[in-house]
Write a protein that binds this DNA or RNA. Structure first.
Length: 1006
RNA sequence: GGGCGGAUAGCUCAGGGGUAGAGCGUCGCCCUUACAAGGCGAGGGUCACAGGUUCGAAGCCUGUUCCGCCCACCA
């Protein structure tokens, strides 16, 4: 590679330019196509929940697309024969409403002005115009859908499946037509299923009482109602049969005060709760679901007084023709006039409204088609009980089960035009013929001139067939054989009943097998305030706008990172910005690599035989650990864990540590070390690209190609998408453990530098004491890297402590002690304060642990390993404490008598040490083993310890110095009430300060 | 009325009996030749409240208070 190519990457990641390229590339190569003839690879299929054809995608869809694409790309890369099947739903009522609204707006016409045929032509037009938008949006998001198999619920094939299902269910007696009470929307002018009713939780209404005079004039019976207008349809008054107050009235009747009718007083133990209201209930079988049942039980008349348009019918006598709400007022007035008003009280009740238009629904008696659901539900329940399909998160199993167990017959006919017209025909005599194709003559009487049922089917009827109708059913296709059942149904929990449950029932019934093995229910996406996104609220975010702004990869990664189980997603743009920065980070790490890969060729990519440094082995171990965690997370549908593992690894381990550590080898002249670092860097990056590809397909694809070309890795597939997904494997824990002290030491030095305001350019001398042999040799071997990262001149000595010296700061970590020589910059007071702060923390930690260890029942009852761990930690802390105490004592002494400094230093005998300076990093010379255990360090050089060290700003030092005191006070204040509150017998858990550094290091060594 | 979630750092959220975590924001220092969309460091928590179980509780149990959501035919 020449220099021009090596620096080909732009300085920042430009998502627009990169994203524009790859989708067409993938498609052209047919990577997205699921091969139904391939029986060698295991299948993995997902059907995309079909969005409404006339809608456009919102963030909920983007989430669905992202999570499914993550799964599909992961499985595809893992060697599965994947199929992700796209399509759209005709969404009957929703679409019809949109087009009607548009028609009204532009032409001031209703659908009736156009007529059915012309109106449907318009809807199809609309569909053609807007349907493609969804495809474009999915492509912009990078969704690897198999477009060759795209389907629409009203395609001829799917319509055929709908008719087939309808006819078969009818033949089996599972579809029937009946006059029943259904939910009716007076505005939409159609029947709705129970699920399409949304209840206004606590509608504040009134409970109004009035009296029915007894027919014989001997008295009255008072009833209460929330709907006075329906009293015109009353056909009885019911009381509890056991109710003493009304026992005498049973079997007698009342006279209707507004129409010429008498009503029986009946006893009904199911309907009537004697404790509620007056214990007497008016019964309106044609306008109330409970009353309907009462009517059937008692053979009562059913009088429809509210018509389909919401106005009162002719049956309503004095209020006929009035709107139902106007009629309510009028009825109350009329009854009051007759002296029958018995007062009212405020009453909250659930009020059923149309899910689409929010109109108050009317229970209406009408002829509709129903699915007898219980025989279908039973196997669908059983399948879940037997684990043939499982829900994730698991808690949704209960939701599914409880609904399925209390399921009612499903009203499937809709008085709409847009949808699958019901395949039923009527002759002049009203006989019904159900058939796959339009029949010539009536199946009952043989008459011709049949008329097809004008109604269409509930849109969910066809959606319920989606997993198999899209694969060619009722034909026995290779696609069905290969890809049914699907592996995962990934969707929102808001449509468990509407869709998931119906697919379960239909799939089992018609395919003899559940439609999916796993149902993964993702959280709902909300805006930053936690509100549901909706068009009416105007807070809907178009994923394309976000993509355009931050990049599709950033959006995808954000959505995946926020997808934890059990909580809705509140999407804030700061979060997306953060992940855009992550993409940029990955880009720049790659850019760095390209600048340092001159002369490197990947070849077979073998790492064995290379001269791997401890840092090389460490990052490879971390890479394997990250891989394991990501794969495990994906297997468990823990998208957020997978995302955060990747983020943590790439940014904080690969970039923050490894790349920094590798700079020396990469720019040095040791060919073997350089080659090793190059190979490891390439391995880390290429593996990261593959791991990240399902989450960030565009940038990883781009970088894959760039890196592949750069290192001539012709053995790699020429697309990240076609590369294999990294596999779980054994982590080189020894490499992790060995390298721990190096990180610990660098952290410790940086920490002291930061806290003590050591000027960034200064390179203080640091003496690191390491007692343990293996760690010693690692630290010694890595001294040059430590020097570089910590900007210090490093000496490493064997032993538990770094020899005491004035004008120094001390840090103690697990397995080492180190001393920074800070003559000229050391603010004694600040150092004392810093150490005391550290001691305070230590004491808090220590007293907690010692308290535990002093408790005999802890020692007896806790698992031995827990006790052992605490003992070890207590020892560690005590040792650290001892060292810091000694340092403090020395500092105090120095403070008291700084004049003695020179004397003390002069007393220190000279000794050989390994010395490393950041200024001369390439110089690696093995240090002669110093004499153990404790040796005093070399005499301080004559010049100041710190290069180019200006005096520390006094203000800042003073400010810092105050902090620990404040801290301690705060801690005491906090601890006190807690102590008092806790029972005396219980050990007090003091607030424990963080030992961030130690834990970080511990995590790395893990 | 029944059910299910949630309450952890200023904000958004992970975690789920054994040393309180991340991202963003905040503060300090740094343009160190991959990246200022950056680096290094620091600060920040009675894990909603009250009981209980346990050697040990943010986590498990019981109850309470708030906030969501779902289901339901008390007129």
């Amino acid at each position: 590679m020449n220099d021009e190519n090596r620096t080909a990457l732009a300085k920042g990641y430009a998502h627009r330019e990169v994203e524009a390229r790859w989708y067409a590339f993938w498609r052209a190569r047919g990577y997205f196509h699921g091969d139904e003839r391939d029986q060698t690879r295991p299948p993995f299929s997902i059907v995309l929940p079909p969005p409404n054809v006339t809608g456009s995608l919102h963030l909920g869809h983007a989430l669905t697309a992202t999570l499914q694409d993550v799964l599909i790309r992961w499985k595809r890369m893992s060697g599965f024969n994947t199929l992700w099947l796209p399509g759209t739903d005709h969404a009957g009522i929703a679409t019809q409403m949109i087009v009607e609204k548009e028609l009204q707006r532009t032409e001031h016409k209703s659908r009736h002005d156009l007529g059915r045929e012309e109106f449907l032509r318009r809807v199809w037009q609309w569909k053609e115009r807007y349907g493609s938008r969804i495809g474009e949006q999915h492509q912009a998001l990078g969704a690897s859908l198999d477009w060759e198999r795209e389907r629409f619920t009203m395609d001829e094939g799917l319509s055929r499946a709908v008719r087939e299902v309808f006819v078969r269910l009818h033949e089996e007696g599972l579809i029937y037509r009946e006059m029943k009470l259904i939910n009716w929307c007076p505005r939409c002018q159609t029947a709705l299923s129970d699920l399409e009713v949304s209840y206004e939780e606590a509608h504040k209404g009134e409970l109004w009482s009035f009296a029915y005079p007894l027919a014989d004039g001997s008295g009255e019976i008072v009833v209460a109602t929330t709907r006075p207008e329906t009293m015109l349809g009353d056909t009885a008054v019911a009381v509890h049969p056991e109710d003493e107050r009304y026992r005498a009235l049973l079997g007698r009747s009342v006279r209707h005060p507004l129409v010429d009718r008498t009503l029986p007083i009946i006893g009904d133990a199911i309907l009537v709760d004697p404790a509620f209201g007056t214990g007497a209930v008016k019964v309106t079988p044609a306008h109330d679901f409970n009353d309907f049942e009462v009517g059937k039980r008692h053979g009562l008349g059913m009088i429809t007084v509210v018509g389909p348009d919401g106005s009162m019918t002719a049956e309503a006598g004095p209020v006929a023709g009035l709107d139902r709400f106007a009629a309510r007022k009028e009825v109350k007035r009329l009854l009051s006039e007759r002296g029958l008003d018995r007062g009212s009280q405020p009453h909250t009740l659930p009020l059923g409204r149309c899910q689409r238009c929010e109109t108050v629904l009317e229970p209406l008696l009408s002829n509709q088609w129903f699915v007898r659901i219980e025989p279908l539900a039973r196997p669908a329940i059983q399948a879940v009980e037997e684990g043939k399909t499982r829900f994730i998160p698991e808690q949704w199993t209960n939701t599914y089960m409880s609904w399925m167990r209390n399921i009612h017959d499903w009203c499937i006919s809709r008085q709409l035009w847009w949808g699958h017209q019901i395949p039923a025909w009527y002759c002049a005599d009203g006989h019904v013929t159900v058939a796959r194709q339009a029949p010539e003559q009536c199946g009952t009487c043989g008459k011709g001139g049949l008329r097809q049922d004008e109604d269409v089917l509930d849109t969910w009827f066809s959606s319920g067939l989606w997993p198999f109708s899209t694969m060619g059913w009722p034909d026995e296709t290779a696609t069905l054989r290969t890809f049914y059942p699907t592996a995962v149904m990934e969707t929102g929990h808001d449509i468990i009943f509407f869709w998931v449950a119906r697919m379960m029932m239909m799939g089992i019934h018609f395919m003899g097998e559940v439609p999916f093995r796993t149902v993964y229910l993702h959280p709902m996406v909300r805006d930053e305030k936690g509100q549901k996104m909706s068009k009416t609220k105007g807070n809907v975010i178009d994923p394309l706008v976000i993509s355009e702004q931050y990049g599709a990869d950033a959006l995808r990664f954000t959505l995946a990172a926020l997808t934890a189980q059990g909580r809705d997603i509140k999407l804030a743009k700061e979060r997306i910005e953060g992940y855009r920065a992550f993409a940029n980070k990955l880009w720049n790490a790659s850019r760095f690599a390209l600048m340092n890969l001159a002369g490197y060729e990947e070849g077979g990519g073998e790492l064995a035989g290379l001269d791997l440094s401890p840092a090389d082995r460490w990052i490879l171990a971390r890479l394997q650990r990250a891989t394991n965690e990501v794969v495990q997370a994906l297997e468990a549908f823990r998208f957020n864990d997978a995302a955060s593992t990747l983020y943590q690894f790439v940014w904080h381990e690969l970039c923050d540590w490894y790349i920094e550590l590798a700079k020396e080898a990469l720019s040095g002249d040791h060919a073997g070390r350089r080659r090793a670092a190059q190979a490891v860097l390439v391995r880390c990056l290429s593996t990261s690209y593959r791991l990240l590809h399902p989450f960030m397909p565009f940038i990883t694809e781009e970088l894959w190609h760039v890196l592949r070309d750069e290192v001539k890795a012709w053995a790699w597939p020429d697309s990240a998408l076609a590369a294999s997904y990294p596999q779980k494997g054994t982590v080189d824990e020894d490499a992790e453990r060995t390298f721990g002290p190096v990180i610990g030491v660098v952290d410790a030095i940086r920490n002291v530098r930061g806290e003590m305001n050591v000027p960034p350019k200064a390179e203080p001398r640091v003496v690191i004491a390491v007692p343990e042999r293996q760690a010693l040799s690692t630290v010694r071997g890595e001294a040059a890297r430590i020097a570089l990262l910590a900007r210090a001149r490093v000496e490493v000595v064997e032993g538990p402590t770094a020899p005491a010296a004035p004008q120094t700061a001390v840090a103690v970590g697990p397995g080492f002690e180190l001393r920074l020589y800070l003559a000229g910059v050391l603010d004694l007071a600040a150092e004392i304060a810093r150490v005391e702060k550290e001691l305070t923390r230590l004491d808090q930690d220590l007293s907690g642990i010692e308290g535990k260890l002093a408790n005999p029942s802890f020692v007896q009852k806790a698992p031995a390993e827990v006790v052992e761990k605490d003992r070890a930690r207590a020892g560690e802390l005590r040792e650290k404490r001892g060292k810091l105490e000694a340092h403090r004592a020395m500092l105090s002494g120095t403070e008291a008598n700084t004049a003695r400094r020179d004397t003390m230093e002069n007393q220190i005998p000279p000794m050989p040490v390994a010395e490393m300076s950041a200024a001369e990093p390439a110089k690696v010379e093995p240090a002669p083993a110093p004499v153990a255990p404790v040796v005093e360090p070399a005499p301080a050089p004559a010049q100041p310890e710190v290069n180019a060290a200006p005096p520390a700003p006094k203000k800042k030092a003073a400010k810092k110095a105050k902090k620990p005191a404040r801290k301690a006070k705060k801690a005491t204040r906090k601890a006190a009430p807690r102590k008092a509150a806790k029972k005396a017998k219980k050990p007090v858990r003091k607030p424990v300060r963080k030992a961030k550094k130690a834990r970080k290091a511990a995590r790395r060594r893990r």
